[in-house]
Design a protein around this nucleic acid. Structure first.
Ligand code: NAD
Ligand code: NAD
Lengths: 217, 217
DNA sequence: TAAACAATGTTATTCTTTTAACAATAAATA
DNA sequence: TATTTATTGTTAAAAGAATAACATTGTTTA
């Protein structure tokens, strides 16, 4: 499979979630424009994404939901699932862990790490919390290739170094500071403030600096 | 000011956060390549972004950090700051609220909304929680143009409708389902699962499906 | 001071992503 | 059955974003 556009990868993940909901509602077939409407995008884009992953149907009754879900799974999922660690099990770490818990996903949070003695060796939001001292050992034992980074900003750089050293292959960084990793480690940064500032910017743009905000309906 | 590329807006937000850190460390000037290195991007891109916002310096001693921060502020911030509401003050809502609390930002979370009687009329993570019944009234009174949506997925659609009806101009949607809003409302969706699946996908790609993961250093 | 260097500002090019155009064809309808 | 319609699949064009190329100009160094 030639490499897919990054944006397509993102959308496939989103499509799948929607498709699973459709299936839960008993919907077995879905049109490209239905998928599109659900996501505020165009039907052409949906069809193009689906073309790129090599699915096609001779029917004009829409796509087979099950088949599509399965195919997306072939692309996104690893055959035996993927183990994930949460590093820094504070407010955000716990929220994330609680969120993933009980999801029938291929992504399993199998360990948490922290430096707080109160947390170490306890089960938090359903996940065992280990000491940062045991990072490398546990990552090896449990075969964890991906980590979610939710430590305080001041520790982000050091901790990400430790993760890389311990053999982590991908980091999802939720701290508000950038981290550096070698080029063979996949890094995804996400920052809530940036998202919010972006929304604020476009709201400001739309309202126009002169016009007064109206809160009346 | 002609409209800036969306990606530039995102980076400006990130730059600013880094620049504020620099200033806190007493650094008054910064080179484009220093900014670039901090964020794993190229110096050209930094310079281009800075060009687009109309800043320039005749000096070859880097950019004036204060001036840059101020200019980014002129672009991103609204003059009197921006009030934000968190809707659904559960695990994620509380984490976000706690996170924003005490930040000297132009973005202030000034209200939370929930349906849980246990939460209504209490102060949670430093923010007063109101009943969803008072949504429109409070949004008007407190002049809140932006909402962060963190209700359970099943309620996301209805609640976002209520938000739009109440006069909200921008929504940052953290629920795992897509929501629909009129075209004059700014919508930003973010999904943690998608981010994680993306990391997982690229990790899988890099490792190659055949090669065995090595956790040894 | 002159030459080399290092940094910025900007235009041109390349690459990625989205959108448009349209051919093919199953399904619905007259 | 013939015609119209709706839907998919694919190529072509446009738009958006990143990178490269390079001119300009302070600064440093010989
Ligand atoms: N809470 C949010 O919604 C939110 C949003 C955006 C970004 N963030 C970022 O996420 C990070 C965590 O936020 P939070 O609100 O959960 O903070 P928190 O203080 O509640 O949690 C941080 C956790 O990390 C642990 N920790 C500290 N040093 C550590 C180390 N060296 N190794 C491992 N664990 C360590 C702490 O013991 C604590 O449990 C911060 O960087 C914050 O900027 C949080
Ligand atoms: N926890 C996470 O890290 C995380 C990550 C990604 C996405 N999400 C999504 O964020 C949302 C919230 O997750 P959570 O873990 O905080 O869930 P949660 O159950 O802890 O919190 C949901 C809150 O919303 C309130 N609520 C329910 N119905 C409401 C309504 N109609 N109006 C207003 N408030 C209402 C509940 O009382 C509760 O306080 C979910 O949609 C979830 O899919 C959460």
């Amino acid at each position: 499979m030639k490499s897919l556009p990054e944006k397509t990868i993102e959308r496939l993940s989103v499509y799948r979630r929607t498709l699973l909901n459709c299936l839960a509602e008993g919907k077995e077939y879905i049109y490209s424009h239905e998928i599109a409407n659900l996501h505020n995008i165009t039907a052409v884009q949906v069809r193009r994404d689906i073309m790129l992953i090599g699915y096609s149907t001779t029917l004009k009754k829409g796509y087979n939901v099950r088949a599509l879900i399965e195919l997306i799974g072939d692309i996104l999922d690893s055959p035996r699932g993927l183990n994930v660690a949460v590093v820094g099990i504070g407010n955000l770490g716990r929220a994330i862990t609680a969120y993933f818990r009980g999801k029938r996903s291929r992504l399993q949070i199998v360990a948490a790490f922290d430096t707080d003695p109160e947390k170490i060796n306890r089960v938090i939001s359903g996940v065992k919390c280990y000491s940062m001292n045991d990072l490398q050992q546990i990552i090896n034992e449990k075969q964890i290739p991906v980590a979610i980074l939710t430590v305080p900003p001041d520790y982000a750089a050091k901790v990400s170094e430790a993760l890389v050293y311990s053999g982590i292959k991908g980091i999802l960084n939720y701290t508000s500071v950038p981290v550096n990793v070698p080029s063979d480690v996949v890094l995804e940064n996400y920052d809530m403030i940036t998202s919010l500032e972006k929304v604020a910017y476009y709201v400001k743009q739309k309202l126009g600096d002169n016009s007064k905000v109206s809160y009346e309906e």
